[in-house]
Amino acid sequence: MNILLMILSAIISLVTGMFFLGLARKIMAMIHWRYGPPIYQPLIDVIRYFHQRAVSHGFIFDLGIIISLIGSLLVVFFLPLGNISSFSNSGGLLVILYILILSPLGLALSSGESANPNASIGISRKLILTLSYEFVLIIILLSLMSQYQTISLQEIVMLQARKVWSFASWKLILPGIAYLLILPAMLGFRPFEIAGASQEISAGPSVEFGGKYLALNTINHGLLHFITIALFVNLFLGGGDLFGIFDSISGTFWGSFVSLIIFLIKMILIFVISVFINAVFPRLRLEQATKYILYYPLSIAIVGLIIVVAIN
């Protein structure tokens, strides 16, 4: 049963991830007043990459990208997708936080071995940017964990369904806002498209990736979109819950199905908003981005945490 769930969630996340990539391109094209590529264009790209004859810079170049993808997929298993959760009960949010490290680290190792300074610059930027938004993310997660007194993500989702979504509760709205503010940075979207800046440093970490490496990297990219937004939906928007309307069928197959659909719809909404932000903003410099994150989202998150702690 568990293995089936794993396969299912893996497929859902992969498909949704690729869908998100296509959606982003389509929406961007529409905002540009263009027709744009078909929504499955990223899939075509991946297939093409996969059939190209790639170059490799060494063993870690291969291994790193695999580790990266493993990391992303592992996180997916720890996320409850609606009512589907493979093993969101073995370690909870802390494990998620840690496995989230795996993906950038694998990428970093892989592109580090490519011996290209553009890649190194990209990784350096990515790590610094991640460090700065991780300040905020950790505080957000801590406020949630302190509020709900659990480290299990699934329980947080369940508690929200029972009471009120975190985003709607006045105690947790500040962390929610902070999360929204750093969401583009987590997705690597435009005001924060610093690490993978294609015009400036030739796509940064993935500069030497081609062929199947690039294929894996693109899949990974989609997965990261998926994870970031799924985490937000789970933490703040009650996961697959819709004001308890479908409580009566929870536990059944259709219940799970409905909750999954609701979950995906919520995700798409959030993603579309992020793409809008991506469309209208120019790129920031790394210093500006770091400063922004450490000023506004961080202070909001800290105030949120203080409120939570003070009230408990």
């Binding site: 990459y49 294609s198 030739s202 796509a203 993935s206 081609g210």
Partner: peptide, 8 residues
């Protein structure tokens, strides 16, 4: 494409 490795 940003660099020749990714282009065809």
């Amino acid at each position: 494409a940003p660099n020749p490795r990714q282009a065809n």
